[in-house]
Design a protein around this nucleic acid. Structure first.
Ligand code: FES
Ligand code: FES
Lengths: 161, 161
DNA sequence: TCCTTATGGACATATAATATCCTTAAAGGA
DNA sequence: TCCTTTAAGGATATTATATGTCCATAAGGA
């Protein structure tokens, strides 16, 4: 069980897009170069973000992507669920119904206890992700990443947006 | 991203093994029939549990599996990590190092913030799973599953253990 | 008109999940 | 001792998913 590598890409892209000058767009090519990932495949991830309403896109020269709303309004869960899908990681195939001792009449009012526990644990995970926004991420990045690298990246992005 | 179906199988098997008469073993064939899953593949899951020290096995007639310790000492996380491996679901491929603006000298004292957040969320998930034991599961099952089905299953298992 | 870009579909490849088969060795019973 | 039962584990097959590439199309800007 492993998350797609696109999740890492998408979160890093959002953090870059959050620093974009107002109204500007950054294109897929630049985002791909910046992170050293294949442009065509990254494009799929960005399309997923667009479909989820997290980013806006525009065509033509000076086109590309930007965040669809304030970075403080986009959570990690928004991004992760856009890439991975919102469904649960644990899927119950109702094996309890296969018990040969089970009378046909048995009705399953509630979901299986095993499934409920697994889903509760996932909820805790989701809740943590919902508690973290791209804005908070950027704050942390500013705090931890060397100033010269931040500055150089900002310039590099500025030239291309 | 999805957990293996063996996770569901393994947890249900543990709940059955927890109800086994003292010192008895239940074989793979019975566990497979009880849950309606392929015996050979379920066997791999049980082997994983054995390797993790959660169950004991014995050969020959009247052989099979039983829990290696009290059901109260086996958590959901024990089972999940035995099947899925203990590694994180989010894997960081250090794409931050691919930034073309980055000086060679840059050192990464701490893990990337994105990764740290993702791993923190996973910790919350793990913690929930660690808080639930097979014993608690059995308690819940006894409470929720119809008495006649519980009884019939106990008899069925008793005949085969 | 021409260039740039996102979109989306088709396609190819790699990896992981799911499943089956078969051989081996150990345990127990006759 | 011989035979049956069973777990262990390796080999293999099948399917699904992840990863990655390619191309045709439409739209925006110069
Ligand atoms: S039947 Fe699916 S988790 Fe119990
Ligand atoms: S470099 Fe891997 S999560 Fe940031």
């Amino acid at each position: 069980m492993q998350l797609k590598n696109q999740v890492e890409w998408a979160l890093h892209c959002c953090s870059i897009l959050a620093g974009l000058p107002d109204g500007r767009y950054l294109d897929t090519k630049s985002l791909a170069q910046l992170h050293g990932v294949p442009k065509e495949y990254l494009s799929k991830a960005l399309q997923a973000l667009a479909k989820a309403g997290l980013v806006l896109s525009t065509l033509g020269p000076s086109g590309g992507y930007r965040l669809a709303r304030a970075a403080s309004g986009i959570t990690f869960w928004d991004v992760v669920s856009a890439i991975e899908g919102p469904g649960p990681a644990f899927v119950c195939t109702e094996i309890r119904r296969n018990n040969p001792c089970r009378p046909k009449s048995t009705c399953d009012a509630k979901a299986c206890i095993v499934a409920r526990v697994m889903w509760e644990a996932e909820d805790a995970w989701r809740e943590k992700l919902r508690g973290m926004t791209i804005a908070k991420l950027v704050d942390q990045v500013v705090e931890e990443v060397p100033a010269d690298l931040m500055e150089a990246t900002a310039v590099w992005v500025g030239e291309r947006s």
